[in-house]
Design a protein around this nucleic acid. Sequence first.
DNA 1: CATGAATGAGACTTCATTCAT
DNA 2: TATGAATGAAGTCTCATTCAT
Lengths: 208, 208, 208, 208
Amino acid sequence: MASAPRTKAAIDKQRAILDAAVRVFARQGFHACRVSDIADEAGVAYGLVYHYFDSKDEILNTLFRERWNVMLATIKEVDTEPLKPRDKLQAIASFIVDSYRHDPELMKVIIVEVTRAANSFGQTHLGEIREAYLMIAEIVTKAQREGTFKREIDAEFAAMAFYGAIEQVLTGWIFGLLPEGEEHFERAKKLVVETVCGGLQSEPAAAK
Amino acid sequence: MASAPRTKAAIDKQRAILDAAVRVFARQGFHACRVSDIADEAGVAYGLVYHYFDSKDEILNTLFRERWNVMLATIKEVDTEPLKPRDKLQAIASFIVDSYRHDPELMKVIIVEVTRAANSFGQTHLGEIREAYLMIAEIVTKAQREGTFKREIDAEFAAMAFYGAIEQVLTGWIFGLLPEGEEHFERAKKLVVETVCGGLQSEPAAAK
Amino acid sequence: MASAPRTKAAIDKQRAILDAAVRVFARQGFHACRVSDIADEAGVAYGLVYHYFDSKDEILNTLFRERWNVMLATIKEVDTEPLKPRDKLQAIASFIVDSYRHDPELMKVIIVEVTRAANSFGQTHLGEIREAYLMIAEIVTKAQREGTFKREIDAEFAAMAFYGAIEQVLTGWIFGLLPEGEEHFERAKKLVVETVCGGLQSEPAAAK
Amino acid sequence: MASAPRTKAAIDKQRAILDAAVRVFARQGFHACRVSDIADEAGVAYGLVYHYFDSKDEILNTLFRERWNVMLATIKEVDTEPLKPRDKLQAIASFIVDSYRHDPELMKVIIVEVTRAANSFGQTHLGEIREAYLMIAEIVTKAQREGTFKREIDAEFAAMAFYGAIEQVLTGWIFGLLPEGEEHFERAKKLVVETVCGGLQSEPAAAK
DNA sequence: CATGAATGAGACTTCATTCAT
DNA sequence: TATGAATGAAGTCTCATTCAT
């Protein structure tokens, strides 16, 4: 960080810049926006952005880390609770959907600019991203050991499928391909877990 | 297109540029690479790229359309065949995985630069992308009508989850998070369908 | 000056800033360093630098004038003393070398940033710099009148050669091209005068 | 170099940029001028400067090397000729003065921006600069071995004094402190050698 | 006196695109 | 078709200076 803010007011300014960056990144995309757009959106002078951040990159890195750390902490906490595997996945799915509900622009930025950006920020945060996948895989592994989940589906693979399904639903909202709104968010939480855990097939068919 | 190639040699040149672009986009990312990088990779003069393409954007657009049209055609064809819904999804999953197996760089480019790029190419190709989702959803809808698939999971939603699961597996390969290789590709085809159609839960648990 | 310091403590602060500036200018060069570097080096707040100085330029100007005035005073004094011309030049050479010995960083700054900076500070201080040359030339002129020095070498020219020889020796030390240390400093004082006054040629050859 | 020019016309353009840079650097100083000033002076588009050079720095580096290599070659050649030591130094002094006469702006740039720039370009070209000093010192060393020059003055030291005397004369011209013109140039060539080799003192005085 | 946040002009550099040959 | 020189708009980052407290 270019300069650690010392006063309360300074911290607020830094926050304002980060929040403005979310809006601008979400609206225009990281590459298409200019640092001056962020400054304008935040209502601060151009130079102040560089007073608090070393570069445009660092702003996105900061945004990603802030949110991803919450996610990692959540998954970690969920895993320690006495829940059934499916409920653990349900809690994670709910958290991610709620993250989107709470701040869709931030999640858009994270998904569009980081978790799929194999040549730029995704690479930078590979370790942190992988950590989330591994923790989910761990939940699956435990479920397989206790017999709740099928053993023939590799845990790491299952984790990717699960996470991918959720992220794609968010992508659907982001692109305007799926309907948004309270009820849809709640429904999505259930459905994604029902899909990945219960499967799309009806019971009789599955019982084939 | 800047200039439709007439001669055989010209068509080859254009192809060489497209193929070079795939490698360069995959290696450096669309934004990070320069048009001169593509020319160098293709072994042609800088200006020639502009003889065959109007812009850097058009190169990516062309690459995407070429591949996506094949995908759309495949899904369309699959849907007309007398297959069980799950086998249709299996065929689609196989096609996508094979696409990656056949040309991982191209698929990397499509996933990283287009299907998740909500502010740039993703927006440009939104119609085509949606078309694929809708066709998959249509398969699900029919399956639900005939009772093979559960009706409580919205077809469009199911389509997104299905597609997202596959794309995430490809993303795992792209990022080096999942192991690649013939056997893994084959296994992935089965597992993704087993996960989404059959569910992660073991029968007894599901039967609960 | 931005604000003439009144209290003893204030004077010390201003001195600390000047001393810090010498170190920073010597280490990074005037252009490459930032005002904040000076503040950091001095251990004072950024803004305080501007409390004592109007600009970054003024700091260097102050440093130069402080030292150059001592030099001018010294030359002036030397000239009034009842010394032989060569001894006068010897005294000047000694003063300059001692200046370097006493504060090599300051002399580095003066030579590198001022006396050769034809487009910036050198131009600003042209009058003062010329004054030194003229006083040396005056010594030579008198020596020529009294017959101690050859008349065929223009006094002004001789002054430049003399001063240039010394400054180049200092440059050699600054660049690490000539060995430093007490004995070298002492030796340099003698040699530069011996070179310029006595000449490099051995007597027989000169007597040719 | 950013791009090696291939055609005759391209080489001319590159030359035009270098020549323009000399004028601009000499007039405003390296730091004070902008790349656009160089482009304007050369009558080319801004971007073309970067087509031929990687950076503003590289332009100066190129200018320095071009000239300095000629100097090194000249000194080397002079040293191989069957001349008396003093005549060798005379040849070198003449070459430097002629360099100034031929292209005073280039010499100004080299002296002001490189040979005394201990923190930037001087450091970059330290090796090449030292090489010149060493070759001159070598001439002195040989002269001392054969008895032409006094042995009590270290050769390296003498080389610095000699070179410094010349450079200071050029500096005098650059600053407008010494009169320029054909006759002065010719006179300077002789005087600098007479000063450094013969000494300022008149014979009787030297015969002390 | 002292602090460091705030400002914004300015410069380098990049690179997509055009053009003359 | 083919080449690569030429163009210039645009964006990031720097940093001297100002200002509110």
